Simulated scan of single mutants.
Amino acid sequence: MSKLRDIGWSLWDPIGLLDPESRPGRWDDEANLSFADEYDSYLVAAASQLRRGTSPDEVVAFLVEIETEHMGMGDNQSARSRAEAVVDAILADETIWTWPDAQGRFGQEAR
């Protein structure tokens, strides 16, 4: 989950909760832990869709719809590019797609 949060908070953050001017830092900073899980369900859904073979374009559309309609943020010029960045980052992060071995290691040695 922390990998997905790293991606979501650094590339997406549609509400702007970690706006550098009002609330600087990372999602895992002590001051921000009260809302660190704000986007979890959407990020997990996006990763799950990708894992099941849903096309990246469909997952991008899902994230844009979440932001613009579900969250009520309206049309935003950057919504699509931020959603694309999230999907690209999820697909590129191999540790999201693996399970740790008994020692908690990821990667080839864990398979």
Rank of each mutant, 00 (worst) to 15 (best):
residue 49 Q to L: 15
residue 96 I to G: 06
residue 44 V to A: 10
residue 23 R to I: 05
residue 82 R to C: 10
residue 17 L to W: 05
residue 96 I to D: 09
residue 89 A to R: 15
residue 7 I to P: 01
residue 72 G to S: 03
residue 24 P to H: 12
residue 51 R to S: 14
residue 8 G to E: 10
residue 111 R to L: 09
residue 71 M to E: 11
residue 21 E to M: 05
residue 8 G to A: 09
residue 2 S to F: 14
residue 61 A to K: 14
residue 4 L to T: 11
residue 82 R to A: 10
residue 36 A to K: 15
residue 66 I to C: 02
residue 12 W to F: 12
residue 44 V to E: 15
residue 110 A to S: 15
residue 68 T to H: 03
residue 4 L to R: 01
residue 71 M to Q: 03
residue 54 T to D: 08
residue 100 P to D: 15
residue 105 R to S: 11
residue 65 E to M: 08
residue 63 L to Y: 00
residue 80 R to M: 02
residue 10 S to R: 09
residue 39 Y to M: 06
residue 87 V to P: 09
residue 13 D to A: 06
residue 11 L to W: 07
residue 42 Y to A: 12
residue 96 I to A: 08
residue 76 N to D: 05
residue 75 D to C: 05
residue 85 A to P: 06
residue 24 P to C: 04
residue 38 E to A: 03
residue 72 G to I: 04
residue 93 D to A: 12
residue 111 R to Y: 12
residue 18 L to E: 06
residue 80 R to T: 11
residue 18 L to N: 02
residue 75 D to M: 06
residue 22 S to C: 01
residue 42 Y to F: 13
residue 68 T to W: 00
residue 80 R to A: 09
residue 91 L to M: 13
residue 69 E to S: 02
residue 79 A to D: 01
residue 3 K to M: 11
residue 84 E to A: 13
residue 46 A to N: 05
residue 35 F to Y: 15
residue 31 A to D: 11
residue 83 A to M: 08
residue 47 A to L: 07
residue 78 S to K: 08
residue 63 L to P: 01
residue 76 N to F: 02
residue 14 P to W: 10
residue 83 A to C: 09
residue 46 A to P: 04
residue 67 E to N: 01
residue 8 G to P: 09
residue 82 R to V: 10
residue 51 R to V: 11
residue 76 N to R: 01
residue 76 N to V: 00
residue 26 R to N: 08
residue 45 A to M: 03
residue 10 S to V: 06
residue 14 P to I: 07
residue 13 D to L: 00
residue 49 Q to N: 10
residue 58 E to H: 09
residue 23 R to E: 08
residue 31 A to F: 13
residue 19 D to H: 11
